[in-house]
Nucleic acid binder design. Structure first.
Lengths: 282, 282
DNA sequence: CACAATGTTGCATGTTGATGCCTGTTAGTG
DNA sequence: CACTAACAGGCATCAACATGCAACATTGTG
């Protein structure tokens, strides 16, 4: 684990790094790995949270996809499961590829899990994903601009569409709202569906990751048949019956590892207590 | 280990070498290896840090990480003060305006403080700022796409520039690296400066917020004279002497509220002294 | 050579930061 | 509702720290 002793500043950096990488940390784990008391870890997490660098939750801390509001709620659902999917998704990517990452909270997790130093070029129209990758010097990041639809969480207007048509990614990490072996892929918003169609058209290959509840679900706007995707990432306990239907259509199947988190929906404590430092002696 | 006696300068060089090699040094170790007192080591580290060659932390010193840390560290510095500036900055904005928010950690704070329901349209090329605002339904968000420079933390290539030229914002929240009443505004990167010039040209009005250490500092790439900005937000305790120099040029001055929070940079001790180097001119 | 000026060093001083353990409190769980 | 783990705050302790001072070496100057 963490053999050497670390200075406080280093420890905080390490913790921050782990939060960025894994999306979450547990105070108990950190205490063990840094061989220090949990109090010290908690203090460090408190500090980081006070600086707005992570969200303090009961049991540890979460990465702050620096938003708040409705999307945040979606993002907080099934954090652990999405994380597992995201990691598996990231493992599909090969060094040197040009990857377009579509909008969606699962894809945010995938972006977080992108291994360093494999010389990627990444494009995205989702500001949250872009923010996750913005300060990484080990990859080239290209953002797609345009008017951001707050319901979708990405730029999906004509301008964005035009910019997408200038790209030719090797791989597309597609976010999808519903997938069904017969009905294909679908989205909840017309513009979103249009963007996804354009992305599919331009990309060499496509991969999607889906939570169990999206399997054999449906949504109003059709994107395409299921066979437009080459790789499908599902949860460890995805129903075999449904999944085999996709395999029959020649889709490569990837199962994410089952990681048993204590809880997925932890409550965020005191994000706004910026000034909450212990008042020093007089 | 370090048998021979070294002259102070030699020792500093050796220490720097070790910092570069290992990324970190402990004061105690160095004292033992150079067979000198810890005081001497601490003095040396203080010197090096004052020259901006390393980051002084509790226990030793860290390499001033150009790899992953630069932007992150910048974001971690002076959080509270930036927050105060950001809030004041946000209060300048009037309902219904079209605001462009330039890159920079102070502007991230400003974005966070944007009051809801004043019907704004906001444009930005900084993914972090975009992410902060991505799911707000009470404003229209337009992102500017392009290749993101990880040192600047925003899209600043030709594509981004072209998109900027299509906009005509009422107000520009300009991020700036250095400002001086005589030398004007300046940035650390050529592309960044170019982008800022384009933004200034297109915008009806401009406002900037600056930490004390940026006042009367200088940076390599000129952006423009100080009178291109209409509003200047400074900290509560900004030196009156310097500030009045700006007022004389007809700039509206706004003082942020003094929020007395303890510490934001506790671990990283006074990295701000870096700015004092650039602020002294021959 | 004498002598002052300067700079470096180690030590003693008091101050601050970091940590672990203690207390009581609160959030999550069955 | 009872139980446990995680929590915040207080406190004692120790390490790291800044500062002032005196001793010493180095250099420059008369």
């Amino acid at each position: 684990m963490q053999g050497r002793d670390l200075m406080p500043a280093e420890r905080q950096t390490e913790i921050l790094e782990r939060i960025r990488k894994d999306g979450r940390v547990l105070a108990t784990d950190l205490a063990r790995e840094f061989s220090t008391s949990e109090d010290t870890i908690r203090r460090a997490l408190r500090d980081l949270a006070a600086q707005g660098l992570c969200a303090r939750v009961y049991g540890g801390a979460l990465a702050i996809s620096p938003a708040s509001g409705t999307l945040l709620q979606r993002r907080r659902e099934a954090v652990g499961r999405k994380l597992a999917l995201g990691q598996k998704m990231a493992s599909i990517i090969r060094p040197g590829q040009f990857v377009f990452i579509d909008a969606g909270s699962t894809n945010v997790a995938a972006a977080r899990s992108l291994p360093s130093s494999i010389g990627l070029t990444v494009a995205t129209h989702d500001p949250t994903i872009a923010a996750v990758l913005a300060d990484r010097t080990d990859l080239t990041l290209i953002t797609i601009g345009g008017q951001v639809n707050p319901l979708i969480g990405a730029a999906v207007d004509g301008r964005a569409l035009r910019q997408v048509l200038e790209l030719r990614p090797d791989l597309l990490l597609l976010g999808i709202c519903a997938i069904d072996a017969d009905d294909g892929l679908a989205a909840f918003h017309s513009e979103d569906a249009q963007m996804k169609r354009a992305l599919l058209e331009r990309s060499g290959s496509a991969a999607i990751a889906v939570l169990n509840e999206k399997l054999s679900a449906s949504a109003p706007f059709q994107v395409g048949a299921v066979d437009v995707v080459a790789d499908l990432v599902v949860e460890a306990d995805a129903p075999k019956k449904i999944v085999s239907g996709f395999e029959l259509q020649g889709i490569r199947l990837h199962r994410a590892k089952a990681l048993n988190m204590k809880s997925s929906g932890k409550h965020i404590v005191s994000n706004d207590t910026v000034g909450s430092r212990s008042s020093k002696r007089p």
